[in-house]
């Protein structure tokens, strides 16, 4: 049994351009870990999980750390830190759901170091921002040797190929969107979400035109609570309907037990989080 304090051996590369990064990754797709903020990667490497020959840092690649307002969307570079997003006036104004979720992620240190790209790419329980981006219909730009392409965040893990990495997140700005975000964690400001629910509702008054509900703490195929969304569409968001949708979301969600919580309890939590997030969307500012 080995207990390490030091990082393992690896070679550190820090390409100075997107092109250089893409070609390095193309050349060593299976031997390279791409590092953004490093909070997740270095933590895992100290536990000797997922150690590869190279660590390719994106810190020296220019242009990945900007937030830009474009027509109909906000573009967020993959190296923008979670805290920068939470603080950015344009995000707070145009994508309140994302700003709120970023502010609720981790701690001041983690938010100052961790990046949106890293959070999206890690595909772990710590990726609290992913359900939020799915609910917002966000897209991710992937860079590769053959140039870049854009995929929806929802499809990201299915889509991403060896040699590609995330360079940008595109969040559409939708007028009249109501939203809610709830996460449950034992220590609410320290722990990553055991489960979470992000909802985005389009509509006027209480009638829901369209709804997106995305979940954290569930298996990939059940990230979207599609049946719950259908229940809401075209109907008035009464408490009874919200409970019905939340129950459907929990029923469909596939959760797994972890060392502290059973799969059944997580399902129960999903129901509560979805219902509270929906109530939040209906009555902004009120306790769920």
């Amino acid at each position: 049994m080995y207990y390490y304090r030091r990082l393992p051996q690896f070679e550190y590369v820090a390409p100075g351009s997107l092109k250089e990064a893409a070609s390095f990754l193309q050349a060593h797709p299976r031997e390279t870990r791409v590092m953004a903020g490093g909070t997740i990667l270095l933590h895992r490497m100290k536990e000797r999980i997922g150690v590869k020959k190279y660590v390719m840092s994106l810190k020296a690649v220019p242009g990945l750390d900007a937030i830009d307002k474009a027509p109909g969307q906000v573009k967020i570079g993959s190296m923008v830190t979670i805290q920068t997003i939470a603080d950015a006036p344009v995000v707070r104004r145009q994508c309140g759901l994302l700003a709120a979720a970023c502010q609720m992620l981790g701690t001041p240190q983690i938010r100052s170091m961790g990046t949106i790209g890293g959070n999206v790419a890690c595909n772990l329980a710590t990726a609290e921002i992913v359900p939020v981006l799915i609910a917002l219909d966000a897209q991710a730009t992937l860079a590769g040797a053959k140039g870049s392409r854009t995929v929806s965040v929802e499809e990201l893990y299915r889509e991403v190929r060896d040699g590609e990495f995330v360079t940008e997140i595109l969040v559409p700005v939708k007028a009249g969107q109501a939203w809610g975000y709830e996460k449950w964690a034992m220590r609410k400001r320290f722990d990553y979400a055991t489960v979470s629910a992000a909802v985005a509702i389009a509509g006027t008054g209480r009638v829901c035109k369209d709804a997106k509900i995305a979940l954290g703490g569930v298996t990939l195929p059940t990230r979207r609570a599609r049946r719950a969304e259908e229940i809401l569409k075209g109907r008035s968001l009464t408490n009874r309907l919200i409970v019905e949708a939340a129950e459907a979301a929990a029923e469909d969600a596939r959760t797994g037990a972890d060392i502290h919580f059973t799969a059944e309890y997580k399902k129960e939590l999903i129901k509560v989080m979805v219902s509270r997030a929906l109530k939040q969307a209906v009555s902004p500012g009120k306790e769920g």
């Binding site: 939470a86 902004p284 500012g285």
Partner: peptide, 14 residues
Amino acid sequence: PMKGPSRKPGGGKQ
């Protein structure tokens, strides 16, 4: 002073 984190992410309309 910057607006610090709010205790509850009050949902909102945009």
